[in-house]
């Protein structure tokens, strides 16, 4: 498959996955570009140990999480990084909540849900996104995240519990 073919087969999936992590179009497009640059650079070394789609999913998730970490560290100034070891003060908040997959009249409700999702750990966030937004099966999600189905189920239960706590705390 050529790069062009790979791009046009997967670009919507990649863009929407990035959107679930950052909830705005500009950041999602930037992440999508980063992802396909990485795919293009590493295509020759792809060893078919997993399917191409699973490989692209893994790159997408890692790039999205790296993007969020980079944004967090930009917010942190030098003095704060010395005195504050707790990352909670530097939570990622999207520059503008502009998710095109959400209707405008429901924006506030979804914004609260995503604010809670953004506070979860990377793995918990990912499992919620893959299972509940991307509508992947447990088997597919376990393969993407390189976990056993049992470990995935346990991770999902923790994520669900923490998400429930975060949403109830916000009232």
């Amino acid at each position: 498959m050529t790069f062009e073919e790979i791009y046009f087969e997967h670009y919507k999936m990649v863009f929407n996955l990035a959107l679930q992590y950052v909830q705005n179009i500009q950041d999602a497009e930037e992440i999508t570009q980063d992802i396909f640059v990485k795919v293009g650079d590493n295509l020759n070394s792809f060893k078919n140990q997993s399917s191409l789609k699973t490989w692209i999913y893994r790159i997408s998730i890692n790039q999205a999480l790296d993007f969020i970490k980079a944004k967090k560290s930009q917010k942190r100034n030098f003095l704060s990084s010395i005195f504050s070891l707790n990352d909670e003060n530097f939570k990622f908040e999207p520059a503008n909540f502009n998710h095109p997959g959400i209707e405008l009249e429901h924006k506030e409700g979804y914004k609260k849900i995503f604010e809670a999702i953004n506070k979860l750990s990377d793995n918990q966030k990912t499992v919620i996104i893959l299972l509940k937004i991307e509508d992947k099966s447990q088997a597919e999600t376990a393969e993407i995240m390189n976990l056993s189905v049992k470990a995935l189920e346990s991770l999902f239960q923790r994520a669900k519990k923490n998400l429930g706590i975060l949403l109830n705390t916000k009232g």
Partner: peptide
């Protein structure tokens, strides 16, 4: 969360990539 619709990226994204 399941009701979130798929969005379409901009047409220039491929060229930018």
């Amino acid at each position: 969360l399941a009701n979130i619709k798929m969005a379409e990226p901009s047409e220039t994204l491929y060229a930018q990539t």
